[in-house]
Structures are given as structure tokens and as C-alpha cells.
Design a protein around this nucleic acid. Structure first.
Length: 208
DNA sequence: CCCTGATTCGC
DNA sequence: GCGAATCAGG
């Protein structure tokens, strides 16, 4: 396999979207993640953020990070990888106490999720779903952003370490699983872990 | 062990 | 230019 224009385009696109080198390699086929990384460097589009600088680690979850930190944008970054800015989505971080301390797993993993509008096909009502106001705005914003990049896996494509968060309406074709890399030992990716597991205190405070 | 990107260097 | 091997890290 060689780097045809088309393949390079796919590479650029996926890299810009924050997909990992290994995911890009799988998509392209015929190349390893090393090849992808090597190409990325030769194309000069490595560092997804700040440009001519040092490695700048901690970019594991660019989206989640961006959504979590309002970041007053002090110094305008040099034109670099266009991070899709998370929707403003009127969020008032006002008195949001720190969450994500020690987890309290006893929260029932929300089943489906209030996609656009909750559509109950016809039959039985769906199991109780977490109302939006039980989820922190940060987590929600992060999830919405992440779900745009979901790998849209089918049930059969899920593995031990892919996010198993369901997206869409199971009663229609418009349904798939997130599929992004899951957090070690968890069934979901970072973003979805954020809405599935919440400290009890946080839940109580938010509930109406 | 799973994974990530970064770097080196023979080809 | 390419990418396997290796490195450094989560």
C-alpha cells in the first residue's frame, strides 16, 4: 500500500478529528499505526495543539479536556489543528462542586439515552432513564461532542475494550454503540463513564 | 497487558 | 519517503 492522495486525505481528516493512529491505520488498512504516525510527522501535522513546540502530553482526550475547561483563551494559538469548539451551550459552572472524586458505582447505568426526543416506539415504556438534570452540564457537553466521533459499532463489533454506550433508538436502524476506546476496566469511554458513574453527593445536589 | 504518540535509522 | 523497532508514557 502506498500513500495515495485519497489515503492521505483520510489520514488528515481522521487525525484532525482526534482519532488515534491505530484507529486510522485500521480504517486505511494495509498500514500499521507506526506507518500512520510516521506519515503524520512527515506531513508536519503532528502536535494537535500548540504548534512548534514540545510533545505536550495529556492530549489523550482533547474533547473532554476542552469541554471541561472553559479556558479563557488567553493567548491566541497559532493557526493549528482546528479543535471543533464545543458548543457554548449555556453552562453556568457557578457553584459546581468538584465531582469525580471516588466513584459510587451503584448508579444504574443509564440505558439508551435521551437522543433527540425520547421516542417510545409503541410497546412497553422504556426503563427509567436519567433525566438530563441529573447529569452535570460538563459531562453532557462532553458526551455530545464525543458522540460525533463515535465509531458507530454494531453489537458484534464490540470488544473488551470498546465503549459500549448505546446511541440512538434501538427500535430503529438509527442505533449503534459508541465504540471509542473504553477506560481500562470500565465498559465505557471517558466521556460516557462521566455520565454513567457519578458521586452520590453530586447526584443528590442536582436532583430536583 | 492494554493503549497512546515520538523518534530513530536502515532501506 | 517509508515504516519497524524502539522509546516513553498513561
Amino acid at each position: 500500500m502506498s500513500w495515495t492522495d485519497e489515503r492521505v486525505e483520510t489520514l488528515k481528516k481522521m487525525w484532525a478529528e482526534g482519532q488515534s493512529a491505530s484507529q486510522i491505520a485500521k480504517e486505511l488498512g494495509g498500514v500499521t499505526r507506526n506507518a500512520v504516525i510516521g506519515k503524520v510527522h512527515r506531513l508536519g501535522l503532528s502536535n494537535r495543539v500548540g504548534g512548534a513546540g514540545k510533545p505536550d502530553e495529556d492530549l489523550a482526550e482533547p474533547v473532554a479536556a476542552a469541554a471541561a475547561q472553559p479556558e479563557p483563551a488567553a493567548a491566541p494559538r497559532p493557526a493549528a489543528a482546528p479543535r471543533p469548539a464545543p458548543q457554548p451551550q449555556r453552562v453556568e459552572p457557578a457553584s459546581e462542586p468538584v465531582r469525580a472524586e471516588r466513584e459510587e458505582p451503584r448508579v444504574a447505568p443509564p440505558v439508551p439515552q435521551p437522543a433527540r426526543r425520547v421516542i417510545v416506539p409503541a410497546g412497553q415504556p422504556l426503563p427509567p432513564q436519567p433525566s438530563a438534570n441529573e447529569i452535570s452540564p460538563e459531562a453532557l457537553a462532553s458526551v455530545r461532542e464525543v458522540e460525533k466521533k463515535a465509531r458507530r459499532l454494531t453489537l458484534m463489533e464490540l470488544t473488551e475494550r470498546t465503549c459500549k454506550w448505546p446511541i440512538g433508538d434501538p427500535a430503529t436502524e438509527d442505533f449503534w454503540f459508541c465504540g471509542l476506546p473504553s477506560q481500562a476496566g470500565k465498559p465505557y469511554c471517558d466521556a460516557h463513564v462521566g455520565v454513567a458513574f457519578q458521586p452520590m453527593s453530586s447526584r443528590r445536589d442536582r436532583r430536583r
